[in-house]
Design a protein around this nucleic acid. Structure first.
Lengths: 196, 196
DNA sequence: TGCGGTACGCTACGCTACGTGTCGTTTTCA
DNA sequence: TGAAAACGACACGTAGCGTAGCGTACCGCA
């Protein structure tokens, strides 16, 4: 309660050193060229120490990614569901397009398919978090009369974020400024109650 | 005209042997564990010969993928755009969900981000092909009066396929039978002309 | 019949990164 | 002060990469 003790403190410091180095290398070279040996060299931490905490570079990269995702805050009540959705999707577009999070994501996808444990962690921490947030916004919209009560939040969530990731991972089309609004404006009519 | 000659024939045979072996190994182990050495062993082709044709396992995997994609045929005129879209999206869902194409895709995504040449090839052959087909269907719908004339085919294409790939690559949700219909039914109202 | 060219096989490398094992050293804390 | 935890340093064995060098089979042509 008073303040954290020091053996754990030591652990935390090397932890930070490792994650920082990973972040940097990720930004410079991408996940594909991330090597545990390079992380060890840059962080001035022994390779063995890294392996004592993560099973390999995949888990390491995921740790960095989760670190970033968890900084996303809940969307505030704006009084307008359409606007709230734009805000939320746009946050994802921005973070995926401008920071290294996009690059980490690109590199991580293949590992997700190959590593079930990693996939589970990713889904619980990232996907589920996005879904829950969409659900929250939609529920608020239903209460408000902004959104039809029979809307399926999961489908909505997929329609909203699918195109974003499609661009990031496959088509290579830019994650530009108006993208979120365009997507939401395309999807929102389906969610809205009245016919127009 | 009588029959194909032999030097080129020989090339074609080893080509086939390599691609077949790649396909098999891809199905058994996934892209992640695909190694050129294993392909060489199974195909009974020297490793050097493989490197004489492809720069590495990425190009090899892409070659297999393109091979599969190009077997997709154009959607026939069904007289109903909604139905045509369902058919088209469903074809993608099926091929991604049941054959090894899904696995290849999962493994390839990361390489796309790291290898611009590969990305270009993928976009020209796969993404562009999907987009062109959606555009064709939509144009037909516009003529037919089925679809609003101001619809953006690119956005439509992203809304239709984004969710499919989102499931395949990220959320892990199943690519089940009704998925195509659910997506199209969610998106189609936006494309349709009348308000209703 | 002989000769050049193409396609291919085979062996042997050098290299990077992996993941592990072992042991010595520092730091913490009772 | 001394055990225990955290860490560093070094040394391995292994897999797969991509390349080089050289020999061989076969096709087609003069």
């Amino acid at each position: 309660m008073t303040d954290t003790v020091s053996t754990q403190d030591r652990r935390a410091r090397t932890d930070k050193a490792i994650l920082d180095a990973t972040r940097e290398l990720l930004a410079e070279r991408g996940v594909r060229e991330l090597t545990v040996e390079a992380v060890a060299a840059r962080s001035r931490v022994a390779k063995t120490t890294i392996y004592r905490r993560w099973r390999g570079k995949d888990e390491l990269a995921l740790a960095v990614l989760i670190d970033m995702v968890e900084q996303v805050v809940a969307t505030p009540d704006l009084g307008d569901t359409r606007q709230e959705l734009i805000t939320f999707v746009d946050a994802a577009v921005k973070i995926l397009g401008s920071t290294l999070m996009g690059r980490v994501m690109q590199g991580l996808v293949s590992e997700l398919a190959a590593n079930p444990e990693l996939a589970r962690a990713f889904r619980e921490r990232v996907v589920a978090m996005r879904l829950a947030e969409v659900k929250r916004v939609i529920d608020r919209g239903i209460e408000r009369g902004d959104v039809r009560p029979d809307v399926d939040p999961e489908l909505a969530h997929e329609l909203l974020f699918g195109p974003v990731y499609y661009r990031l991972l496959l088509s290579g089309a830019p994650l530009d400024k108006g993208l979120a609004a365009r997507i939401v404006d395309a999807v929102f009519p389906v969610l809205a109650p009245a016919t127009r």
